[in-house]
Simulated assay, not measured.
Amino acid sequence: MDEAVKTARMSAELEVPATLGALGDIAALVLRLAGSAGLGKGASYRIRLAVDELATNIVMHGYRGGDGRITVRGRSGPGRVRISIEDRAPAFDPVQGRLPPEPHTAPERRRIGGLGIHLALTSVDEFDYVRRDGRNISTLTVMAEGTDPCPPRP
């Protein structure tokens, strides 16, 4: 028997200190949005992984352990979650910091850094970055498996 997944539109905002301790609050928000959108385990994991990686990079590399804030805004709808992460750390475009894996290089000889960002960006369906008014704004979208990212218009 097929059970319809109940979905609802949801908007949420969270501002937290840029600390590793705040990552759990961010993950909880992301998972609430994923649940309200009716995302399955795979899509929920992908959006959580990507947001966690970007937020961790903000804490560790953007603010370098100093004082700062991270604002997370999210919206969900049936089969879709969009999350924006904002910070006032120095400018950093994750697409430019992305280092794809080097499959033909032995692990001990590979360059350090950038692989987490690569994994984050390849795990989402859409990604956008802008620097506006002194803020880094990364926006990520994940859709439920089997969802057409460009449905036909009526």
Rank of each mutant, 00 (worst) to 15 (best):
A4L: 11
A8G: 07
A8E: 15
A8R: 12
M10Q: 10
M10L: 13
S11V: 04
E13R: 10
L14Y: 03
V16D: 12
V16Y: 04
A18Y: 00
T19F: 02
G21H: 06
G21A: 12
A22I: 11
G24A: 13
G24H: 06
D25K: 13
A27P: 08
A27Q: 14
A28P: 10
L29S: 05
V30E: 06
L31G: 09
R32P: 11
A34P: 09
A34N: 08
G38A: 03
R46D: 15
A50W: 00
V51Y: 01
V51K: 01
E53H: 02
L54R: 03
T56N: 12
I58K: 00
I58W: 00
M60C: 07
G62H: 01
Y63M: 08
G66L: 08
D67R: 06
R69W: 05
R69V: 11
G74D: 07
G74C: 05
S76W: 00
G77N: 03
P78K: 04
R80N: 12
I83E: 05
S84M: 08
I85F: 01
I85K: 04
D87G: 06
R88A: 14
F92V: 11
F92Y: 15
F92G: 11
V95T: 13
V95S: 14
Q96D: 13
G97R: 05
G97I: 05
R98W: 01
P101T: 01
H104Q: 11
H104N: 14
E108L: 06
R110M: 10
R111N: 10
I112V: 15
G114Y: 05
I117R: 02
H118T: 10
H118P: 11
L119D: 15
L119V: 14
L119G: 09
A120C: 07
L121Q: 06
S123L: 03
V124Y: 05
Y129E: 10
Y129A: 14
R131A: 13
R131L: 14
R135P: 07
I137R: 15
S138M: 04
S138I: 01
S138K: 03
L140W: 00
L140A: 08
T141G: 07
V142S: 06
M143A: 10
M143W: 04
M143F: 07
A144M: 03
E145G: 14
T147Q: 12
P149T: 07
P154V: 08
